[in-house]
Computed example of a mutant assay.
Amino acid sequence: MTYIKKLLAIGLLAALAPLSQAQDQAQHLPSVAMSAGMHMIQAEVARTPQQRAIGLMHRTELAPNAGMIFVFEESAVQCFWMRNTLIPLSAAFLDEQGRVINIAEMKPRSDQSHCSTGPARYVLEMNTGWFSKRGIKAGHKLSGPFWPH
């Protein structure tokens, strides 16, 4: 390997190291207030591809009315898995207006893919069973800063 190639390889490894380390620990993002009817939600907002890729990985717990909302640039079929996610979660796939398309119950540390049944712009992850315990299902509209009330 030439001297220049060695320098480029070292530079590339140095540049990728922070990303690798970031994906090995829980992230904590700014949050927004949302609601599902009378039920209040405090949701961290994952907007960037890196934030969405890490999501709720490496967390050992999630407060009862806390979650994470994943914001995508455009509506499409969205699919989620639970690799490196230590807690069971429910994912509500939401359309452009914040209406629930479908909800998936997801097991920790699983590579099983859970997808929206239609184009989704947002995905809200909460503790497992959060939506079903409150009677929230497909067609229910959420309120928050992303949609008009």
Rank of each mutant, 00 (worst) to 15 (best):
R47Y: 05
L13G: 15
Q42T: 15
P30K: 10
E74N: 04
A63V: 00
T60G: 11
Y3L: 14
V32N: 10
P119S: 15
V71A: 08
L142F: 15
N84K: 10
V45P: 03
M82E: 03
F146Y: 09
L29R: 13
M34F: 07
H114Q: 09
S113W: 07
Q51G: 03
R134V: 02
P64S: 14
H140Y: 15
L94Y: 00
A9K: 09
A15N: 08
I41N: 06
E61I: 08
W81T: 00
F93W: 11
Y122H: 08
E105M: 09
R99V: 15
R121P: 01
L19S: 14
L124G: 04
E61K: 13
I4D: 10
A63M: 05
Q112N: 05
S31Y: 14
G67H: 00
E105D: 15
A14K: 04
S31C: 12
L94T: 05
A22R: 15
I41P: 04
H39F: 13
I54F: 06
L142T: 09
A120M: 12
F131T: 03
G135K: 02
K107N: 01
T2K: 03
L29N: 08
F70H: 05
G118R: 01
L29F: 11
I103P: 05
R59E: 02
A63T: 06
E61D: 10
K107F: 03
G55D: 09
L8T: 04
S90M: 09
E61Q: 14
L13C: 15
E105F: 10
S116Q: 00
T60Y: 11
P30V: 02
H28A: 09
L62M: 06
M34E: 00
V100M: 00
A43I: 11
Q21R: 11
R121A: 14
Q25D: 15
N84A: 07
K133E: 08
M34T: 11
G37V: 06
I136C: 03
E105C: 06
E73V: 00
